[in-house]
Simulated scan of single mutants.
Amino acid sequence: MNFIEFLQNLMSQVPLLVQPLIVAAAAAIPFLESELASVLGVWAGLNPFIAAGAAMAGNFASVFVVVVFGARIRAMIIARRARRSELVVAGAAAGGTEVLDEPLAEPKPESKGVRRFKKFLVRFGVPGASILGPLAIPTQFTSALLVSTGVSKSWVLLWQGVAIFLWTTMTTLIATGVLTLVTG
């Protein structure tokens, strides 16, 4: 039995209404994302439109969560730094010395994917980095990086949605074509 038949047999054992939910759940996982989840959905026997739609929804849902929580975390960090700098300035004005709660850690070296992503961001802006980002790192990581640099939540969500739509559509079309060639 080949891989496609295995997937189709496996998916046929699951109720019809649950099948898109499986694709959506797979799409929420970084590195699988909507691109691979839609391919697996199509090869498992789902209608390409349903597989692509479920994959896009699952991937966008995970990106939405990352963006919302990432923006909150960034806001908390900025507020903490502002409070800390106010304390340092007040302490220096009173003739005290600066005391930090924690030692400053050496920054970790950036990974190859993060460096490539930052190049995309500088060169092409948020739209280009969002669309080209999946070539370097998963969309969830791309979203977190964009939000951490101060890009607005709505702008990140808009362009991540566009990128998810484009990449998922492309891979779903390719998967459908390959399936047609393989199965005749």
Rank of each mutant, 00 (worst) to 15 (best):
W167G: 08
A136M: 10
M1A: 09
M1F: 11
L40C: 01
F141N: 07
A105N: 11
I73G: 02
A129G: 08
A82I: 09
G53D: 04
A136Q: 05
E106P: 04
L21N: 05
R123N: 06
L17D: 10
W167H: 12
F49W: 13
G125D: 07
P103Q: 13
M1N: 10
L21G: 02
T183V: 14
F165K: 03
R83C: 06
N47F: 07
A90V: 03
T176K: 07
A55H: 01
V156A: 04
L158Y: 08
K119L: 14
P15C: 12
I78T: 13
V162D: 05
V65E: 02
W159E: 05
L100D: 10
I4D: 01
V147N: 03
R74C: 09
L100V: 05
R116W: 13
T149G: 06
S111L: 07
P107W: 06
G91E: 15
A44M: 05
F124N: 06
K118M: 15
L36H: 01
G128E: 11
M11I: 12
V99S: 12
F165I: 14
L166W: 11
T169W: 06
V122D: 08
S143I: 08
S12L: 14
L157Q: 01
G58L: 04
A75G: 08
V65K: 04
V68G: 00
E106Y: 09
P107K: 08
A129D: 09
F117R: 03
G128C: 12
W43L: 14
A144K: 04
P15L: 12
F49N: 00
A90M: 09
G161F: 02
R72C: 10
Q19N: 04
F6T: 15
P20Q: 01
A55G: 02
R123A: 13
P138A: 04
V65S: 03
V147R: 05
G41W: 06
V89M: 12
I137V: 12
S85I: 15
A90F: 02
K108W: 12
G91T: 14
G128H: 08
G113E: 09
G96E: 15
V156Q: 06
T183K: 10
W155F: 12
L21F: 09
I29S: 02
P109I: 10
Q8R: 15
T139M: 15
A28K: 06
K108I: 08
V99A: 13
A94Y: 05
F120S: 02
P30Q: 12
G53S: 05
V23G: 00
A44D: 04
A57T: 08
G95P: 10
F124E: 11
W159M: 07
E110G: 05
R80C: 09
T183I: 15
M170A: 15
E98G: 00
I77K: 14
L157R: 01
V67Y: 03
F3D: 06
I22G: 00
I73W: 12
A136V: 13
L158P: 02
V14R: 00
F31L: 14
L40Q: 00
F69R: 04
